[in-house]
Structures are given as C-alpha cells and as structure tokens.
C-alpha cells in the first residue's frame, strides 16, 4: 500500500478514513487532527496552562507529546498509585520519567499517594469498608488529586488521553443501560462547575486507539505495554472487543456512533434529563473541594477515616 500524499510505502492503513500514509505523513496528519479537535470543541488556547494527566501509557504520553509539538503550554501530572502487581506503578513512572528526559522543557508534577497520605491505593482499598471495587476508589483518588494540583497550579484545564475507543466503549455501556445522566454529561469537554473543579478535555476523543498506538510507536515513545493488573476482565475491554468486531465488518462504525451522538446532542435532536436539578455543593471541611456529602468529601472520608459526626 502506498502513502496517499507522497506515494512512498505506507506504514498504516486507516480503513475508516480510506487513508494510507507513510511515517512522515502519518505523524503530520495525526498532529493536525488533534489540533483540529482542540479547536473544533474549543478546548483551550495557546495561552492557557494545561495539565496533562499521564499514566505512562500510549495515549497520555502521545497526548503530551502532541500538545508540546503544537506549542501548547502543557505540563504533566503523574499520580503514583502504588500498584505493585506486575510492578505496574514503578514501570509506568519510569516510562514517564524517560519521556520527560527526552522532551527538554517538559515539566512534570509527581503526586505519590503513599508518601502524601500514608497508604497506597491498593492499601486504601483493602482497609476501606465502602465495599467498592478498587477501580472506583482509584478513580476517586485520581479525580481529587487532579483537581487539587490543577487548582493549586492555576491550570485552565486537565487534558486526559481518552481515545475514541474509550469514549465509544463508555457510550455503548451507557446506552445499553440508558444511563441518561451519564449520557447527558459525556462530551469532549466537561466545563468547570466550580473554581476548585477543573475543566476536563479529551483532545484524542476522535482518534482511534489503533491510531494513538501507531503514533506512539512511530514517534518512538516508550510506553507501558502491560495493563494495570486490576483492569483485567473489565467491562470496558469487553465492549472494546465487541465494537472492534463490528468495526472489522463495517469500518467507521465506532467513529460514526460517537460523532452522531455528539451531533444529535448539539442539534438538540436528543436531550437527556436526569441532570436537571444540580445538587447543592458545599466545601469539604477538610480539603475545601466542593462536595454534596455532609461535611466531608468522599476522598477525605477514605483518607482520614472521617464520618459526619467527627473523627
């Protein structure tokens, strides 16, 4: 197969775009697509300070790389969760540090949960009596810390590496259960609803997972290939596999499912109730982040073992 732009040997064929490209033109095309997405959804501007949540995986490191190449003011945030299985956290931190060494001028914040709060995420999950799966707790910790660092550092937005396949898997899951509240909120941009809750943006939301992996490989970004051990058997992987079966038979299905959903919402052809009355927020008495729970936010309840009636 030949590159559509220059006729050289192609390195990737994207059936959904009917487009095959060589290395040079693929990298150019990919970066251009991401910049278009940033502008199309008015995510942020060149003057805004952006915090990129990096995990050491292909998506977040590729995203940071693209934003730096495009000249955005993008700093990284790595949250060390202390996951020991498969040396996941150690290896992922190594990958992030290697990336920083190869990108002069890249600034990285590291938040180490165990150092800051005394216990790693798996340790918190073990002692927590909330009966929640570790991933729910992990999500809670990551959200809280991302918001904290973004607020303290005066960042305009947090950018995450969610790709099209991630978004489509979530959309599929939410549609299967008609979770209208989640469907109402699913978007490339989540505006800030409070000064301490950062704006969240997903510049890769239109890029196929296969494309972000190809970008990382072609750009020579060394990323962690192994999964977090707790991701094994997750429903998102099940949905991704199902959707890829569909994509294989009918290229472009994933992209059109997602884009037509966004378009229909934008045109108000569909609108979801359920998010109507926004619940009342008040500051957590411990950390100050807004919460709907009495006195303390969910994060502080776990970390400091707080209950409504005091310690």
């Amino acid at each position: 197969m030949k590159c559509r732009k220059c006729g050289e040997k192609a390195v990737i064929n994207m059936r959904h775009h009917k487009l095959a490209l060589c290395q040079k033109h693929y990298l150019e095309w990919f970066i251009g697509q991401v910049d278009k997405t940033i502008k199309r959804y008015r995510m942020f501007r060149k003057k805004d300070k952006i915090l990129v949540a990096v995990s050491g995986g292909k998506d977040s490191l590729s995203l940071w790389d693209v934003l730096l190449r495009l000249g955005y003011k993008a700093d990284g945030l790595y949250i060390n969760l202390g996951i020991e299985g498969g040396n996941y956290s150690d290896i992922s931190l190594e990958k992030v540090e290697k990336f920083v060494a190869q990108h002069p001028g890249a600034h990285l914040h590291i938040v180490d949960i165990k150092t800051l709060y005394g216990r790693s995420v798996p340790e918190l999950a073990r002692e927590s009596h909330r009966g929640k799966r570790i991933c729910a707790l992990c999500g809670l910790v990551k959200r809280h810390e991302m918001n904290r660092v973004a607020y303290e550092g005066g960042y305009y937005a947090i950018a995450t590496g969610h790709n099209l396949d991630d978004e489509v898997a979530v959309l599929f899951g939410n549609t299967l259960r008609w979770q209208t509240g989640y469907l109402a909120r699913q978007a490339p941009v989540l505006p800030s609803t409070h000064p301490m809750l950062a704006r969240k943006v997903k510049p890769f939301c239109r890029m196929y997972e296969r494309e972000t992996a190809a970008y990382a490989i072609l750009q020579g970004i060394d990323y962690i290939y192994e999964e977090c051990p707790y991701a094994v058997g997750s429903t998102s992987i099940l949905y991704k596999n199902l959707l890829n079966e569909l994509e294989e038979q009918s290229p472009g299905s994933k992209l059109s499912f997602y884009l037509s959903f966004l378009q229909a919402k934008e045109n108000e052809q569909i609108c979801f109730m359920g998010e109507e009355a926004s619940p009342e927020l008040h500051p957590c008495e411990k950390c100050g982040q807004p919460t709907t729970a009495p006195r303390y936010c969910a994060f502080c309840r776990v970390i400091y073992k707080l209950r409504e009636n005091g310690i």
């Binding site: 197969m1 390195v11 898997a169 997972e209 290939y225 991701a231 997750s234 998102s236 992987i237």
Partner: peptide, 24 residues
C-alpha cells in the same frame, strides 16, 4: 517498522503484533 496488512509475508520474516487495546 510498522507495516500495512496487505504486506505479503516472505520466508524468514518475523512479525510482531502489538495489541492496541487497553482498558480500565
């Protein structure tokens, strides 16, 4: 190097397939 799917394999070729799906 990345190659496209239409590439015909020759004797002695070694091809590594990189899984692209990650979840969580």
């Amino acid at each position: 190097k990345l190659i496209t799917e239409d590439t015909v394999l020759k004797d002695g070729d070694v091809v590594k397939l990189i899984a692209v799906i990650s979840g969580g």
